[in-house]
């Protein structure tokens, strides 16, 4: 019995042989359609999958030849039980079910360019929370922006899905070294945003966002808070 268990475990680590159901599968020398086809494996022959790179799969044929085949051709193979191989599609559905998201954006914060990185965690299909670090570099100052916000996406299944954000954070402003006003300042802010997300491919998505910030910079000698705007375009990968 022990022997049986160990031998089963040993085979579980092996690759599952797949039988080709297309008339043939083309093997490329590299993971891209630009790399030449150097070998063809016929219908009925068995192959195993060694690894994946983007939408390409490295396979080994029965004769030991190794090469890269497309995802589309891999879907035309049969599992040992005769069922057609179906990859769990990384598609719009996977995108809607995502939990984690990591992204970068570039844009403008009140005439100064801003670059940001963010990480997001989704509680449900509609709600997620995001942590953003932004770096805005202008002619007279550069600012670091730390932001925590809540994002609401009312129609997650739309192709171009709109969303709203509400956030809080702090902005640290450092004046340029060539200016004679050296005082750094740090202020809290609140933020209201509107954006649009578009699923592109695999784990990749695009997002466009517009934010309005109210910087709580009012003090004894300044009555009004500052209002500033930001727009940005970026992309993200999700898990």
């Amino acid at each position: 019995m022990l022997l049986l268990v160990t031998s089963v475990r040993a085979t579980a680590d092996e690759e599952v042989p797949l039988t080709i159901d297309d008339p043939f599968i083309e093997m490329h020398t590299g993971a891209g359609s630009g790399y030449p086809i150097f070998h063809v494996v016929d219908r009925g022959q068995k192959i195993i999958i060694l690894k994946r790179k983007t939408n390409w799969y490295k396979i080994r044929a029965e004769n030991g030849k190794e090469g890269w085949a497309t995802r589309e051709q891999m879907q035309q193979t049969l599992l040992p039980d005769g069922q057609q191989l179906k990859f769990a599609e990384l598609d719009q559905n996977a995108f809607e079910r995502r939990r984690w998201e990591l992204g970068v954006t570039a844009g403008e914060l009140e005439d100064a360019p801003i670059t940001s990185v963010y990480g997001a965690y989704g509680f449900t299909r509609n709600f997620s929370t995001e942590l953003t670090l932004g770096h805005s570099v202008g002619n007279v100052s550069s600012s670091l922006l730390y932001k925590l916000n809540l994002l609401m996406q009312p129609f997650p299944d739309w192709d171009y899905s709109p969303y709203f954000t509400l956030g809080l954070g702090t902005i640290d402003v450092k004046p340029s070294a060539t200016l004679i006003e050296p005082a750094d300042k740090s202020n809290e802010f609140s933020q209201l945003g509107l954006g649009l997300r578009k699923y592109l491919s695999r784990r990749f998505m695009l997002r466009l966002e517009f934010n309005e910030y109210v910087i709580f910079s009012a003090s004894n000698d300044k009555d009004e808070n500052e209002d500033i705007n930001e727009w940005k375009l970026g992309f993200a990968i999700f898990f």
Binding site: L3, L4, V8, T11, T54, L79, P80, D81
Partner: peptide, 30 residues
């Protein structure tokens, strides 16, 4: 079954047939 390896493979053959293909097992290199 125990000493003969040929019989052993015959024993586990159904296990092999039933092995699940798991896409997550494929080593992704992105």
């Amino acid at each position: 079954a125990e000493p003969e390896s040929a019989e052993e493979t015959a024993l586990i053959e159904p296990e092999v047939e039933r092995r699940e293909f798991d896409e997550a097992d494929i080593d992704g290199n992105d």
